[in-house]
Design a protein around this nucleic acid. Structure first.
Lengths: 122, 122
DNA sequence: CGGTATCCTAAAAGATACTG
DNA sequence: CAGTATCTTTTAGGATACCG
């Protein structure tokens, strides 16, 4: 019964933990954050550097990250169009906590004897 | 073009980062890990302490966490049946990286001006 | 170049009922 | 108590075509 680390929150919709879990767990968000890093990237850069992402998913992910205030989008009114993406200070600040998780994953790689995760629905 | 923090991996299916992102991003996994914590919990404890989870989802999540080697399941052959869940050492070890992420979320709560995340499909 | 719009399928989750 | 089984609904995501 003893809560050894505190409940923090109920993990419901509006809980900041749920938001960051959704963010990190999103198929493309972390890739996008990683790839942008401290650089400035164009839409086509991202498409090229993130193998497997479709335009639809890339756009959707970028819009969400923008809403979250993690990514800044800058459009230049030229032809052909040019759009730049960079991380906001908030966006850069999340790179560290994500790295912590990443280090854990790499360190325990061999213990994660998982197949694909993603739902073993019988 | 400069990769300022290293590519780590391509974030494909077999990448440990993807696995841990899937894990943490999974709707119920982190809740279950948090709630079990350093304690021993029964199935019904978990159901009660995680509001909104269905039997189906709870069972599925627990099975996945077991496969991952993060949770240990112990069944007692009694009537009525009794099943205990606890974290493995590996499971306990992930509590810290998750807390790092959680702290970030709490700290930047007011900046995360997100609505629901989860797909703004136009 | 940097996107939208539309259609379509596959997977995930909810509800309900049943069981050793 | 601790689950399965089955069915239905919802959602995510892929393919393709088109646009300023």
């Amino acid at each position: 019964m003893a809560e050894t680390h505190g409940p923090l929150c109920v993990l419901d919709e509006n809980c900041p933990l749920r938001q960051v879990f959704d963010l990190v767990g999103d198929r493309w968000s972390s890739s996008v954050l990683f790839v942008i890093g401290h650089d400035v990237k164009r839409y086509s850069d991202l498409q090229r550097q993130i193998p497997g992402v479709s335009k639809k998913m890339l756009t959707q992910t970028l819009r969400n990250l923008e809403r979250y205030g993690l990514v800044q989008r800058k459009v230049y009114a030229v032809v052909p169009p040019r759009t730049e993406y960079r991380l906001t200070p908030l966006g850069k600040s999340i790179l560290k906590p994500i790295s912590t998780l990443a280090s854990w994953a790499v360190k325990n790689q061999k213990d994660l004897r998982a197949i694909t995760m993603r739902k073993v629905v019988p």
